[in-house]
């Protein structure tokens, strides 16, 4: 359809602006402005409890300090490790669960409802319970290991496992969103495709490879975008499961930012870290977009 400059089109445009105005204004004031504000604060000298209202411009000093500090790079690395594990588990787990729950079997409604349960939970409460379940000496999980004469892994208190564990738990809590979306997308696949597959005698894996995956690929890419975005929101999960420990082994960047700002009152340093983190995430997403475009145009 070609756009003609008619009276009705003009009115449409005006309605359009009016309709998006509240959203855009609120978005600018409460989402964009804090970003700019943070950017501005990162150039000030508000780095102790005494200088919280300081307005001295210090240039790039905070950025230099942050980029030179080990803790920034290690916690950035932890954030990406978390994001990677989280994304893989959510995507693969969400897909497999959806495939399982899409089959007809007795008690399917019940099983589906249960599978969504982790998504509605309060991380704080479930964190307490999980710490109990995975307690190496008293938890039921290691009791199973001990029954076989093994001590079992140390889970959250092992420096090697703490971060992957939190990422997997975070993914398990969030996975239901993907499961639901994929289940819905699966319902859109025309039945005759499967009928053809039946006639051809296709195996289960072949069905997934040649029918399911191509048919839901756009949903999967949408989910991937959302999952990657969510994968960097690790604060609450990490705080309620390991609080960054043991010995900083699960200290992700958001924890570091929080601590720098609200425990040590280094607001400008924290703002610089936040700004850098934001830029890195945006750059990372841009690269993912490119990869995705290449993939889709194969």
């Amino acid at each position: 359809m070609k756009t003609k400059l008619t009276k009705s089109n003009l009115r449409d445009a005006r309605t359009g602006y009016i309709f998006i105005l509240p959203f855009v204004v609120l978005f600018a004031v409460f989402k964009v402005y804090p970003l700019i504000y943070g950017f501005a604060v990162s150039f000030l000298g508000r780095n102790s409890i005494r200088t919280v209202s300081d307005t001295t411009f210090v240039g790039l000093e905070n950025y230099v300090k942050v980029l030179q500090s080990n803790s920034f790079w290690t916690s950035l690395e932890k954030s990406f490790q978390y994001a990677l594990i989280y994304t893989v588990v959510v995507m693969v787990g969400g897909f497999l669960t959806a495939m399982l729950l899409n089959r007809k079997f007795r008690g399917r409604t019940f099983v589906r409802t249960m599978a969504y349960l982790p998504y509605v939970t309060n991380v704080i409460a479930i964190g307490i319970v999980l710490k109990y379940l995975f307690n190496p000496t008293k938890g039921p999980i290691n009791a199973i290991f001990r029954a076989f004469g093994e001590a079992g892994p140390k889970w959250f208190s092992s420096p090697d496992l703490a971060l992957p564990m939190t990422a997997i738990i975070g993914a398990w809590l969030a996975m239901a969103f993907n499961t639901i979306t994929i289940l819905a997308a699966l319902q859109d696949i025309p039945n005759d495709l499967f009928e053809v597959a039946d006639i051809e005698g296709a195996s289960g894996l072949q069905r997934i490879r040649y029918i399911v995956l191509p048919m839901i690929s756009s949903a999967l890419f949408m989910l991937l975008t959302i999952t990657v975005i969510n994968s960097f929101k690790s604060y609450t999960t990490v705080v309620s499961l390991t609080n960054g420990g043991p010995a900083s082994s699960s200290r992700v960047l958001s924890l570091q930012i929080y601590e720098d700002a609200f425990t040590y009152m280094k607001f400008s340093i924290a703002a610089a870290e936040g700004t850098l983190f934001t830029l890195i995430i945006i750059a990372f997403n841009k690269i993912l977009d490119k990869v995705r475009a290449v993939w889709e145009n194969r």
Partner: peptide
């Protein structure tokens, strides 16, 4: 910077005690 001093000591010592 006493608060941070304290946390750093706690943090680094824990890594030492755990043999890291």
């Amino acid at each position: 910077a006493a608060g941070e001093y304290d946390n750093i000591v706690e943090d680094e010592l824990e890594a030492y005690f755990l043999g890291l």
